[in-house]
């Protein structure tokens, strides 16, 4: 019975993942390995960026709006924010589908999301990355790592640490069923600051982490150390988010640009 319950939980979380995220690793890999009929539009300089802005992300950048005359760094930062806001929305719906999450104290649900969403975003972003660049605009565009690096500081410093993390993370060769449980484990984390009902969340976390361990053993029988390696990634992601939060504050100041209210809520008093 216990084994059946664990398999059910793994399945429920995987189904919630497939249902709620518009992009997943299987889709991203199909595009990145050139197996789609139309390859993504490659953004590698100012000219290709402008073309992409007019077509792929016209709605996002508000082509007729206030950002049209702003510098490239500000426009790219704005696009990153839009993508983050969408993924936070998807993550919220995903979290609600994780058994037990919705019956937690509402303030604890908020705390879990506040601290978990960026770790989850960077873990899932790796699926859209290879060593040369990153899929954007639902896979219709591909922005090169070199172009992002060529931008003016501090915006140029924003993505490079995520690429470095992604290259190591992608070497673990997780699939979407593994990632679904990993993302659930990131969100249901008992040691976030300010949680009220820690015991309840720790029980949920233990359950999910145990299911993750069993799932990895079955899904990757040749990689016996995959589970401890993934636990280490949880710590790496926390560090990545701390650095990112500091960088965003710096960008906000130096570029004189605003943050989306949802992201403001998440970053405020975070670490």
């Amino acid at each position: 019975t216990q084994l059946a319950d664990q398999k059910t939980l793994a399945r429920q979380i995987y189904d919630a993942y497939l249902k709620n995220f518009s992009m997943n690793k299987a889709k991203a890999r199909t595009i990145l390995t050139g197996k789609t009929s139309t390859p993504p539009f490659v953004i590698h300089d100012m000219e290709t960026l402008q073309l992409a802005e007019q077509t792929l992300v016209a709605k996002m950048v508000g082509s007729a709006g206030a950002l049209k005359d702003r510098e490239v760094e500000v426009r790219i930062f704005h696009c990153c924010q839009c993508t983050s806001v969408e993924t936070v929305t998807e993550l919220t719906e995903f979290a609600k589908s994780v058994p037990g999450f919705s019956s937690l104290d509402l303030n604890d649900q908020v705390t879990l999301l506040k601290y978990g969403v960026y770790e989850a975003i960077f873990a899932m972003l790796a699926s859209c990355m290879n060593k040369d660049g990153l899929l954007v605009a639902y896979g219709s565009g591909f922005i090169t790592r070199e172009f992002l690096k060529s931008l003016r500081r501090p915006v140029s410093d924003m993505m490079e640490p995520k690429f470095q993390f992604a290259m190591k993370f992608n070497a673990l060769e997780l699939d979407d069923s593994d990632l679904a449980l990993f993302v659930a484990a990131i969100i249901c984390c008992g040691d976030r600051p300010g949680l009220v009902n820690v015991t309840h969340i720790e029980e949920m976390q233990e359950n999910i982490v145990h299911v993750l361990q069993l799932h990895l053993l079955a899904n990757h029988p040749d990689d016996t150390f995959l589970f401890p390696k993934l636990l280490q990634k949880l710590a790496d992601l926390r560090e990545l988010v701390t650095e990112h939060a500091q960088l965003v504050q710096e960008i906000k100041k130096t570029e004189d640009t605003s943050l989306h209210p949802l992201l403001q809520e998440i970053y405020r008093d975070m670490y």
Binding site: V85, L106, L113, K114, L262, E265
Partner: peptide
Amino acid sequence: KEKHKILHQLLQNSTSPVDL
């Protein structure tokens, strides 16, 4: 609660933050 108004709203219904 006021500090995380949008997160509360997202958790309680499916309002898109873009529309808020």
